[in-house]
Amino acid sequence: KYFGTAKARYDFCARDRSELSLKEGDIIKILNKKGQQGWWRGEIYGRVGWFPANYVEEDYS
Rank of each mutant, 00 (worst) to 15 (best):
E58L: 09
I30R: 04
V56A: 10
R47N: 08
E24A: 15
D16P: 01
G46I: 02
A8Q: 00
W39C: 08
G35N: 07
F51W: 00
V48R: 12
K23R: 12
S61R: 13
D59A: 10
C13V: 15
A8H: 04
N32S: 15
A6P: 02
E58V: 11
A6Q: 04
F12L: 02
K29V: 07
A14K: 03
I27L: 10
L20A: 02
A6G: 06
E24H: 11
Q37S: 14
E43V: 06
I44T: 13
F12S: 01
S18C: 07
A6W: 01
A14S: 09
A8G: 00
I28M: 04
F51I: 03
Y55G: 06
A53L: 05
S18L: 07
G49C: 02
G42E: 02
S18T: 13
L20M: 03
A53M: 10
G46E: 08
G35T: 11
E57C: 08
G35M: 07
G42L: 02
R17M: 13
G4R: 10
W40R: 00
K34A: 13
R41D: 00
Q36K: 15
D59Q: 14
G4N: 11
S61T: 13
W50Q: 05
Q37R: 13
G42N: 03
A8T: 03
R17W: 09
V48G: 05
V56F: 02
N32K: 09
A14D: 00
N32P: 02
E43D: 05
L22P: 00
G38H: 06
E19I: 03
A6S: 04
R17N: 15
K34S: 13
R15P: 01
G4V: 09
S21L: 04
T5M: 10
Y55D: 03
K29S: 12
K7V: 11
R17P: 14
A14R: 05
V48Y: 10
Y45K: 15
G38Y: 03
E58T: 11
G42M: 03
K7D: 02
I28L: 06
D11Q: 07
Q36P: 15
G38K: 09
G46H: 04
F51C: 01
K29I: 07
W50E: 04
W40H: 02
R47A: 08
S21Y: 05
Y60R: 14
